[in-house]
Amino acid sequence: MARRSLLFSPGDRPELMRKAPGAGADVICFDLEDAVAPDRKAEARESVRAVLTDPDFAPDAEVCVRLTAAEPAADLDALVGAGKDADSDADLRLDAVMLPKVGSADRVEEAAALCADRGLDPAVFALVETAAGVLSAESIAAAAATDALVFGAEDLAADVGATRTDEGTEVLYAREHVVLAAGAAGVDAIDTVFTDFSDADGLREEAGFALTLGYDGKLAIHPAQVDPINAAFTPDPEEVEWAERVLDARDAAEREGRAVFQVDGEMIDAPLIAQAERIVERAPAGDRPGTDRDKNRSGRHS
């Protein structure tokens, strides 16, 4: 599935959570961590559960909850209705959980175990936003439960004492390291937030740069950011048509036992096939001409 955009929505604002799918993000993430004051955590947990168990809440987007770093077990207990007054029989719409400040693969495995103990099997998004997390990005990405790495530049800068700049050179190494770790493990990489939600041009430029680095999508903190992010990570129709021709030619060559083939006068090798697969995967379903071919990535978590 495409994860071009991930929109955060505060967990203590049920009216905003219910509106979030209308923004058009591929992933909506109800936040129990940074967006909620400590004295409102219990209220936020109840609000998130109420939305996720509402039969009328059935968005097309992937639904994620960002757990708290300090009390993930309490978050999950509230979501599944483990409290004495909760209705534990209600169906819970929870596709993924996001873990903040992941510094090691153990954190991912521990969270996955907490979910399994409560009868849940969500995808795990590991938020890499500390020095320890960046240095352990390879093992975090390779953890069995990890489905995506998420880069957090703001918290990383605070962690190491860096000064944030418009150019972003102070976090560039970490940003590249995270996407390399995700690529090596075959999991998605989601880029950091662009904090000025009033600067659409700056967001487009930054999202375009993230795409050139190899990121699959980008975080959004305001609904107005979703369309520019989706546009940046959506290939042009001409790219999709080229990719379809490459994959059709690959399939024909495999049927005929040929290892070498060409498209539009260009010899096609493995890197170009991988590029074509990536383009088709990022294309919206309505823009995908051609066949019902399996378009999953070659990574482990397809």
Rank of each mutant, 00 (worst) to 15 (best):
residue 5 S to Y: 01
residue 7 L to I: 06
residue 8 F to P: 01
residue 9 S to A: 14
residue 10 P to T: 00
residue 14 P to V: 02
residue 16 L to D: 11
residue 17 M to F: 12
residue 18 R to E: 12
residue 24 G to Q: 04
residue 24 G to K: 09
residue 25 A to W: 10
residue 29 C to A: 13
residue 32 L to W: 10
residue 34 D to R: 03
residue 43 E to R: 10
residue 44 A to K: 04
residue 50 A to Y: 00
residue 54 D to S: 02
residue 57 F to A: 05
residue 58 A to D: 15
residue 62 E to V: 13
residue 63 V to N: 04
residue 66 R to G: 02
residue 75 D to P: 10
residue 80 V to Q: 11
residue 83 G to F: 08
residue 84 K to R: 14
residue 88 S to A: 15
residue 95 D to G: 01
residue 96 A to W: 06
residue 101 K to V: 05
residue 102 V to H: 08
residue 102 V to I: 07
residue 103 G to R: 12
residue 109 E to R: 13
residue 110 E to V: 15
residue 118 R to T: 08
residue 118 R to K: 01
residue 119 G to N: 03
residue 123 A to N: 08
residue 123 A to T: 13
residue 123 A to C: 10
residue 128 V to R: 11
residue 137 A to P: 01
residue 137 A to Q: 03
residue 141 A to E: 05
residue 142 A to L: 09
residue 146 T to C: 07
residue 148 A to R: 12
residue 154 E to A: 05
residue 156 L to S: 01
residue 158 A to E: 13
residue 159 D to M: 04
residue 167 E to S: 09
residue 174 A to Q: 02
residue 174 A to K: 05
residue 176 E to S: 15
residue 183 G to R: 06
residue 183 G to N: 10
residue 190 I to E: 00
residue 191 D to E: 12
residue 194 F to R: 07
residue 195 T to H: 11
residue 202 G to D: 00
residue 203 L to H: 00
residue 205 E to A: 07
residue 208 G to M: 03
residue 211 L to K: 12
residue 213 L to S: 05
residue 218 K to F: 02
residue 224 A to T: 04
residue 226 V to S: 02
residue 227 D to M: 06
residue 229 I to V: 01
residue 236 D to K: 11
residue 249 A to P: 13
residue 255 R to K: 13
residue 256 E to R: 07
residue 260 V to T: 14
residue 261 F to T: 01
residue 262 Q to W: 09
residue 263 V to P: 14
residue 273 I to M: 07
residue 280 V to Y: 02
residue 283 A to T: 09
residue 287 D to R: 13
residue 288 R to A: 06
residue 291 T to C: 04
residue 293 R to H: 12
residue 295 K to A: 14
residue 296 N to A: 13
residue 300 R to S: 08
residue 300 R to G: 03
residue 302 S to L: 15
